[in-house]
């Protein structure tokens, strides 16, 4: 009787597939490559890379299908939308918008959350209770609803979207940093710092913060994907960036009513969102495993 038969292996556990996947997970190169080629480089060099002006349409070329379909042309590789604007160019410019919005939101939200989390974890007691209740409230609010209300109140703009995202994001940082600070502040090196005479601010800045930076980087990376999705959902619902802006969510939303006849209008920006989020999640997973083994269950 062959030894193998006693072990139940899942049907998909073909050696070269599982090994390949394991190797793939170990190196974030694939993720990084997608990110760089799809997102960062085209976004930075958009005016030189993009074949057309993302705002200028020509009605004679409206709803041109992608190049490999009947009626497609090399001039518009991914086709055009209902105003005749080149979809590839709009995706490239859209990466700029998405990146700017999500990076600013994550940076500002991260700073607010980190500072509050450090204060909360280090001082504890009453300050901690107040800040943590705020976090609970923030996390309990339905994301989309809050965004819709805020945008309805202030009106859609770049600033509003970023503000909404910051309000939604800071709480996770605060909670993460607080948890880590709670553990770190019991260690002897904090006691030694106090014995040496370091002020509370110095202890937070020189002792607590450098020891939570790893976790912060991981969380921030994982959140870029989440924020791009969120921003796209907001734009899709009309509560995000102004209509004319070439943002990915806006583009998906634009193509919604044409999905049956001209699938490419919403499909390509959708694929861009999906690949970006996938790449960032893979990168985040890899960073999590390599920067800090304590954080595997984030």
């Amino acid at each position: 009787m062959p030894l193998q038969s006693t072990r139940t292996m899942p049907w998909y556990a073909i050696p070269w597939v599982t090994e390949g996947w394991a190797r793939f997970k170990r190196y974030p190169l694939f993720a990084l490559a997608i990110l760089l080629f799809l997102l960062v480089i085209p976004a930075v060099f958009a005016p030189w890379v993009a074949p057309h002006d993302p705002f200028m349409g020509s009605l004679s070329h409206r709803l041109t299908p992608p190049v490999w379909q009947d009626g497609g042309s090399m001039g518009h590789i991914l086709g055009t939308d209902k105003l005749g604007r080149d979809i590839l160019s709009r995706i490239i410019y859209g990466a700029r918008v998405s990146l700017t919005v999500s990076l600013i939101a994550i940076f500002v939200g991260g700073i607010i959350g980190t500072v509050l989390g450090l204060i909360s974890g280090y001082f504890g007691g009453w300050t901690d209770s107040v800040i943590m209740r705020l976090v609970d409230i923030s996390l309990a609010l339905p994301t989309i609803l809050l965004a819709l209300v805020l945008v309805a109140a202030v009106g859609p703009s770049f600033g509003t979207v970023i503000t909404v995202l910051i309000v939604l994001l800071w709480a996770r940082y605060a909670r993460l940093v607080r948890g880590e600070a709670l553990a770190i502040k019991e260690l002897d090196f904090i006691a030694r710092a106090r014995v040496a005479g370091a002020s509370h601010a110095r202890i937070m800045y020189r002792y607590l913060f450098p020891n939570v930076v790893n976790s912060l980087i991981v969380l921030a990376t994982l959140q870029v994907g989440y924020v791009i999705l969120l921003e796209s959902s907001l734009s899709f619902l009309g509560a995000g960036l102004p209509r004319a802006e070439p943002a990915w969510g806006v583009m998906v939303s634009d193509g919604r009513e044409l999905i049956v006849t001209s699938w490419w209008v919403s499909m390509f920006p959708g694929i861009a969102i999906m690949l970006t989020v996938l790449a960032l999640n893979l990168l985040g997973d890899w960073l999590r495993d390599h920067l800090d083994p304590k954080l595997r269950n984030l």
Binding site: A193, Y207, P210
Partner: peptide
Amino acid sequence: DPWSSLNPRM
């Protein structure tokens, strides 16, 4: 404990 009494980031 000498393992926890020095700030690992300094």
